[in-house]
């Protein structure tokens, strides 16, 4: 393992370093993912660009239309943020379910998204929330909807010279109910075997809007708008919930790994979508 460690203390400095070294460089944030890869010798960058000394990349800023979260914000800070707990409880939940407290104290949101490990929690919650990722390079800045940002296994839309510089989460409709369910098939500190994030708005018993994202069961977390729309203008009856759950279970091409077979994951999607929707119907915020 031999690489050069750069620790720029400004954003332009970091962007310059990335532009200069291109594919040979890797960004280092909390290091919980990248250090493992380095140790297992799965990657061999010649330059590591640490973003830890760049000021003002860790923040949680509330604005009328939503919140901005800085890429260096730790998952622990997100879990404990009053703003997030109040306005996006499912995101606080999803952040708080990651690994264990030692990991959460170190892991950053930017690292979690850029890592794009399918067996993750925050991306699924963020997908349900309609999150936008801002990527910056010397060439400029662009905003990417999360569903376009996450491309495949460990693969994002980021170019080698780009940094995630902001994560924007639009406000949900007032009175929305939300939940995040993480299913671990193994130990209590494991990554998810499957997870479900759901947000619903109601008028009396009638569901006016439903968003469901299912993660960790396939290459990238998924929303199925056609299935979500089944709920629009309807009461969430057991039958309807079953239909929606089946829609997700049947239409997601599940993967097989050490946490469960493809068959098992399909079952877990069905069950956890049911559980999530029952929770929303029964009034959890």
């Amino acid at each position: 393992m031999s690489f050069e460690l750069l620790q720029p203390d400004s954003l332009p400095g970091a962007l310059k370093a990335l532009a200069q070294h291109g594919d040979e460089a890797k960004v280092l944030a909390g290091g919980t993912a990248i250090v493992l890869m380095l140790q297992q010798k799965l990657i061999a960058p010649t330059v590591l660009v640490s973003v830890g000394r760049i000021p003002d990349l860790a923040y949680i800023r509330s604005e009328p239309d939503g919140i901005h979260v800085g890429p260096l914000t730790t998952l622990r800070d997100m879990e404990r943020s009053l703003v997030i707990q109040t306005h996006f409880p499912l995101l606080a939940q999803a952040s708080g379910e990651v690994g264990n407290i030692r990991v959460r104290n170190q892991a950053t949101l930017g690292g979690n998204l850029a890592e794009a490990d399918y067996a993750s929690d925050p991306p699924t919650a963020l997908l349900a929330l309609g999150t936008q990722v801002t990527a910056t390079s010397l060439r400029g800045e662009r905003t990417i909807p999360l569903e376009d940002f996450l491309i495949g296994f460990y693969t994002t839309d980021l170019e080698p010279d780009e940094l995630i510089t902001d994560v924007f989460i639009p406000a949900s409709a007032p009175g929305s109910r939300t939940t995040y369910l993480k299913y671990r098939s193994r130990s209590s500190e494991d990554r998810p075997c499957a997870c479900v994030a759901a947000i619903a708005a109601f008028e009396a018993e009638t569901c006016t809007d439903l968003r469901v994202a299912v993660g960790a069961a396939s290459e990238v977390p998924q929303r199925l708008p056609a299935v979500e729309n089944l709920a629009r203008g309807q009461a969430l009856t057991d039958e309807l919930i079953g239909e929606i759950a089946a829609g997700y279970a049947d239409n997601i091409d599940t993967l097989e790994d050490i946490r469960g077979s493809a068959w098992y994951r399909t079952q877990m999607i069905r069950i956890h979508v049911v559980r999530a929707l029952e929770e929303l119907r029964n009034g959890r915020r």
């Binding site: 297992q40 010798k41 799965l42 399918y118 495949g152 296994f153 460990y154 290459e219 993967l255 097989e256 790994d257 050490i258």
Partner: peptide, 14 residues
Amino acid sequence: GRLAQFGQAVAQST
């Protein structure tokens, strides 16, 4: 070797 632990899911889909 080393790549073996990278995961079956990834290999399959690739």
